[in-house]
Design a protein around this nucleic acid. Structure first.
Lengths: 134, 134
DNA sequence: AATATGTCTATTGACCAAATAGACATTTTT
DNA sequence: AAAAATGTCTATTTGGTCAATAGACATATT
């Protein structure tokens, strides 16, 4: 049960923006430099978070990124859903057709329970809480 | 964040054994047939669970598998740890050397928090509770 | 008008999970 | 004692998917 690099970089990117946006929009280039990622790849990470409404962007010279919400309002579930798609630890949870056994499979309902449990626990963790561990 | 097939098959296998062990040891062949898996592959799933002490085996003719514990005593964390290894959603959680940033990375401590949260939620789910959803 | 910024689609490459194969070991039954 | 049924183990192949790069384009500020 591994996160993809999208998920890993997604959180890092958001933390980076949160830490630097007080001085104005945060540039793709500056994030890439600090986080040691290529700008190209970083763009793939940022775009879905922008589309999900977690980040807002200002274009053109002097532009860059800022958080669209307060850090306390952004949950880890939001972040991971944005960059990795809906949390779905086994395919049958969100697509019954993925397995012909799904009609009768007792394991399926079990996975649904597990999936919900994980989502709930991701929902309790916010960017804000992760930035300032108590 | 996907489970591997090891994890998926692991739970199914354990549920299958739980449901059939009342009539005696459950044969590898019979599990494979019911679950539509090859015996060969199933063996790879079962072995780590046996090594983890979740399953006990009787060898020879008439032999087979039984649960080594009551279903209520087997947590999903036990199962997944057995077949997929320690729960570790990002490499740096259990191996600092996997990333040169780990000394100073603020995201790392965040991932540790997340990882713990997931483990705790897996710990509350037992084979027994999953077999008899309330 | 120039420059700095973000946007998008397509493609490559490498790795790892998934599955198979085949030879072997052990224990019960007759 | 021998046969049959069961589990045990190591090695190998294959295929899909993630990770990363490339290059051309669009937009807004100065």
């Amino acid at each position: 049960m591994k996160l993809s690099t999208m998920g890993r970089y997604g959180l890092r990117t958001l933390m980076d923006i949160a830490e630097h946006q007080h001085e104005g929009s945060v540039t793709l280039q500056s994030i890439a430099k600090r986080q040691e990622l290529s700008q190209k790849y970083l763009w793939h990470v940022i775009t879905p978070m922008k589309n999900a409404g977690l980040i807002k962007v200002t274009r053109g010279a002097g532009g860059g990124y800022k958080l669209a919400l307060e850090p306390e309002q952004i949950t880890l579930l939001d972040i991971l859903s944005a960059v990795e798609g809906k949390i779905c630890i086994v395919p049958c949870v969100h697509s019954a057709s993925s397995c012909k056994r799904s009609r009768t499979c007792t394991a399926k309902t079990a996975w649904e329970t597990v999936n919900d449990a994980i989502c709930n626990s991701l929902k309790t963790l916010t960017l804000g809480s992760l930035l300032n561990p108590s």
